[in-house]
Simulated scan of single mutants.
Amino acid sequence: MYTKKLHAGTKFPNINATLLNGENVLLSQPNGDKDWKLVLVYRGRHCPLCTKYLNELEQHIQTLYDAGVDIIAVSGDSKEQLVDHLEELNVSFPMAYGLTEEQMRELGLYISIPRSEKETNHNFSEPGLFVINLDGNIQVVDISNNPFVRPSLPEFVSGINWIRNPENNYPIRGTFQ
């Protein structure tokens, strides 16, 4: 099976998800005074590595906010699953739910079938990380086919700060075809 991957430098698709309060949000739209957006797609409540990664991300949010990067995390979980997951999470950034398989495919994510109903009750995406710049283009993309391979958050945050520093004039990488 093949997946359509999103390419660095291209427009991030218009994909909506739902926040706990019922608000429908455009994933790529930064809030407040931020002009970039980090969209972190995680597997769901059933994944202890996702829980660990999301909690670790919380330790870096101020640095990302200071760099002008807004954050949202999203999965294919239901509202009820997200509510249950929040008991294990200590995060202040927005969490969204309800990413559909069609949206997962549009993002070029790998999709897995649960091993049993104990894992979860729906197909789910494997991790994806997208940084969308002020032009709505994908500045950074990382897609994995399993929960064990994700960017190191300290290195990722340091890299975003490097990219955002105008003195570095750092272009979008990986666009040569």
Rank of each mutant, 00 (worst) to 15 (best):
M1A: 07
K5D: 07
T10M: 12
K11C: 05
N14Q: 08
I15P: 01
I15F: 10
I15S: 00
N16R: 00
T18Y: 14
N21G: 07
G22H: 06
G22Q: 08
G22S: 00
N24C: 06
V25I: 13
L26A: 03
L26H: 12
N31D: 12
N31R: 15
G32L: 05
K34L: 09
K34M: 01
W36I: 02
K37W: 08
L38H: 03
V39D: 05
V41H: 07
Y42I: 13
C47R: 10
C47L: 08
L49Y: 12
C50Y: 12
C50W: 11
Y53R: 15
L54N: 15
N55F: 13
Q59L: 14
Q59H: 15
H60I: 14
I61R: 10
Q62S: 14
Q62W: 13
T63V: 11
A67N: 07
G68N: 04
V69A: 11
D70Q: 07
D70T: 04
I71T: 05
I72A: 05
I72R: 11
I72V: 06
I72E: 11
A73L: 05
A73K: 03
D77R: 03
E80L: 00
E80K: 06
L82C: 06
L86V: 00
L86Y: 08
E88W: 08
E88S: 10
N90I: 13
P94I: 09
P94S: 11
Y97K: 07
T100I: 13
T100E: 09
T100G: 06
E101G: 11
E102D: 15
Q103A: 04
R105W: 02
E106S: 15
E106I: 14
E106V: 14
E106G: 13
G108W: 10
Y110I: 12
I111D: 09
S112Q: 12
S112L: 10
P114D: 00
P114N: 04
K118A: 11
E119F: 00
T120Q: 04
F124L: 00
S125R: 01
S125G: 13
G128Q: 11
V131C: 01
L134W: 01
I138K: 08
Q139P: 00
V140Q: 05
V141A: 09
D142W: 15
S144T: 15
P147V: 15
F148I: 05
S152Y: 04
L153S: 10
E155V: 12
W162E: 05
I163F: 08
R164Q: 04
R164L: 04
N165R: 03
N165A: 02
E167L: 07
E167I: 04
T175I: 02
F176I: 10
Q177P: 03
